[in-house]
Design a protein around this nucleic acid. Sequence first.
DNA 1: ACTATTTGACCACT
DNA 2: AGTGGTCAAATAGT
Length: 310
Amino acid sequence: MNVILPETVSAKKKKLLIKELLQGKEYATQLKLLLKNPVCSDGSPSVKELVTNVLRSFSETISVMNSTEDCSLDVNDSGSLVEADDLKSEDTSESKKRLSPTTKDRRGSYKRRKTDETRTIVSKTIGDTHSWRKYGQKEILNSNFPRSYFRCTRKHDQGCKATKQVQLIEENPEMYQITYIGFHTCKSTLHTPQMVSFSEDTNWDSILVNSNPHSKEVLTNYDQQDSHVISSERSIVKQEYPNNDDSTTPRSDVTDNLLDPNLWSDFKDFELSKDIVYSCTESQNLEIDFGVFSSDFSNDLIYFDESHLL
DNA sequence: ACTATTTGACCACT
DNA sequence: AGTGGTCAAATAGT
């Protein structure tokens, strides 16, 4: 495990993060012992309780790390943190709308953000609780489906840098691969981002987490009716759907399916939802590598390489 | 040179 | 009027 905390993370937060990680490690250790010696009826916590605690610790940790965003911080091109307000001041919408005759047309003058945080999900729908504006569509080489580019509608008034790219998956045109780039710094969200929470009623048999330092992909499956198969090389998902009559009409344009309030009412950037495959890459604020953490609940196997912790 | 990504202008819809 | 899609053009990256 390789956690690099930036200078801008306060000592208090660092303390909190370390506390949570240590707690999670403790729970994982207990779990390991319990799995080694399953006949323990001495009042020690159950596997379910321990797994809940481990996941809660991770969720809490990531929530705290994400909360650095709340300080209106963002990352500029050189990788250093800047105030979101500064971004706002340099990008006022109305002043740019009409170019003066002397102003050069700045179309295409952009900086490609190679190191921004990206999260890739696979979903049947492309809508979410954020408001997006489509700004481009392009035929992509070696793909039958065009890629659509969306930006946050708050980009100009709040300097929100979040963008997403949507593309139908070649191997499964029923599913969209959605790549979120950058975090929302706008205040258009309905509630504060929250990590996935696991209740006592969580169906553990239906959850599979498989992550390694190379693929960094997390597959979640809350719906037992669905069957996901994922390749760690690419985000390919093969899925059997619940009876769905419109499955015979492939969608060629992602705008057909922008908003589905019922399906997406609970979806936020960092919330796991039904039918979603998450693939997280590098973080702009924190460089996190959870090392080797794999679990197979069906076989009662769990492996967490804690040597990476130190 | 080529592809991917973004911009700004324009337009349709509500 | 506000919102959001389309599209040609500009530019970054390889």
